[in-house]
Design a protein around this nucleic acid. Sequence first.
DNA 1: AATATATCGATATAAATATATCGATATATT
DNA 2: AATATATCGATATATTTATATCGATATATT
Lengths: 215, 215
Amino acid sequence: MLKKIKSFSVPTLRRLPLYLKIARREQSAGKLIISCSDIARECRLDPILVRKDIASTGVVGQARCGFPIDKLIEAVEIFLGWRGGKDAFLVGVGHLGAALLKYEKFQEHGLMIIAAFDIDKQKTKQKIGNIPVFLISKLPDLAKRMRVPIGIITVNADTAQDIADIMVDAGIKAIWNFAPIVLKVPESILVENVSLSASLGVLTSQLNRQKDSDE
Amino acid sequence: MLKKIKSFSVPTLRRLPLYLKIARREQSAGKLIISCSDIARECRLDPILVRKDIASTGVVGQARCGFPIDKLIEAVEIFLGWRGGKDAFLVGVGHLGAALLKYEKFQEHGLMIIAAFDIDKQKTKQKIGNIPVFLISKLPDLAKRMRVPIGIITVNADTAQDIADIMVDAGIKAIWNFAPIVLKVPESILVENVSLSASLGVLTSQLNRQKDSDE
DNA sequence: AATATATCGATATAAATATATCGATATATT
DNA sequence: AATATATCGATATATTTATATCGATATATT
Ligand SMILES: NC(=O)c1ccc[n+]([C@@H]2O[C@H](COP(=O)([O-])OP(=O)(O)OC[C@H]3O[C@@H](n4cnc5c(N)ncnc54)[C@H](O)[C@@H]3O)[C@@H](O)[C@H]2O)c1
Ligand SMILES: NC(=O)c1ccc[n+]([C@@H]2O[C@H](COP(=O)([O-])OP(=O)(O)OC[C@H]3O[C@@H](n4cnc5c(N)ncnc54)[C@H](O)[C@@H]3O)[C@@H](O)[C@H]2O)c1
């Protein structure tokens, strides 16, 4: 019974952060109202699609004018779970992991990376982006005590499953996975994969086809 | 007339790299044949979906057995444009850009980052991941002379459009954009965005909804 | 040799997503 | 004040994507 969560369209969830970014910028520029058409033009999307996406956050607009920016921002932030901020642990302080730790904008997305972990003792000697790095062995205890909901995986592909297992055991509910493998986790655990291969596949495949048709 | 390129499903293009990775691994392990069911199980997808995806690459299988791995790999690589390798320039040697430059696996995806560019002269003093870094002012001439098809954007959001303009002028055909903005480019230019906000939006939104239903 | 079974490939159906249409309404324009 | 217009919100349609069904076939099993 409880399983019947109203699930929202993933494409919608992926577009909303962009609308939010635009809305915030316009708000900073002093605007009080923004219309779906404005957003759609900038995103190069159909205004009807933007309106439907925004409708799913529950915010109500004004005919002929658009949406009050403050209400729109609030609704989208709440809908995305970006209000308040969620704690996260990052595991794998390598090239990519360090880049993420140094990225300051995640706070705008309600993500607080409060600690990082690595197996390499050298990495624990310094803070990165003002975030402390601990030995991976410390993760379970810390995660349980602090009830950290999100784990970020930036270790090598062949270690990623082990780290996922550790995270699940430690009570982490959602995993943001940058390693190029499909993690095996219990159904109740959310996994979102960032697959650069997938993205690159779209680009190069289309590039190839375009070239073929040119000649 | 020429515009009528048979376009393939983007979801399919995004899944194929994963199948390829699995196929390559199984080939290394000595296997000669692989079935859609095998791949589907590992990817946690419906075998029918995997079969349809693979069918779009044109490879033919054997009833009751599966696909010859070598033929499958060849077909997917060709389909994705990963055979031969495509040259790319990267602009913005900051935290993220440097991580990408140091990532060795892009060659497996047919991507050869042959040079990087930055506006900061300091960055040009050293190779990163064995890739030379030049001043951004050198890009147009080099790109034109070498006919580089792909540009990777890892500069700050507020500079990304300028860099895109420079790339388009320099004859680059496809842009892999890591900056969180929608680039304005001519229709003929391909753009693929890597949006961490989008990915994070899916994760946190679903996490929120799950939590709501728990209590 | 006969039978069972797993898989491909084609076709059909279902579900999800995107686009179109239309009335209502708030503002701007005449 | 009357009219035009841009936008919302709801509903309808079209398109895309995913899943199901079924016959053909190659191998394994009895
Ligand atoms: N660098 C990129 O641009 C890039 C791009 C796409 C995908 N990825 C993926 O991201 C992941 C990380 O890539 P990277 O380039 O940063 O690799 P990296 O080798 O630089 O970093 C991996 C880090 O993980 C740590 N680690 C290894 N095993 C561990 C364990 N058991 N517990 C804790 N820490 C452990 C290592 O010490 C290292 O610091 C890989 O899976 C890679 O495929 C990276
Ligand atoms: N670091 C991350 O984890 C991360 C995550 C998501 C998105 N991004 C996006 O990726 C981009 C880069 O992020 P970052 O953290 O690496 O930033 P960064 O500030 O570390 O790097 C930006 C680099 O671009 C260079 N640059 C600026 N203007 C330039 C110009 N006109 N020509 C050439 N080079 C120029 C800077 O000198 C710097 O080296 C940003 O758009 C950011 O939003 C980064």
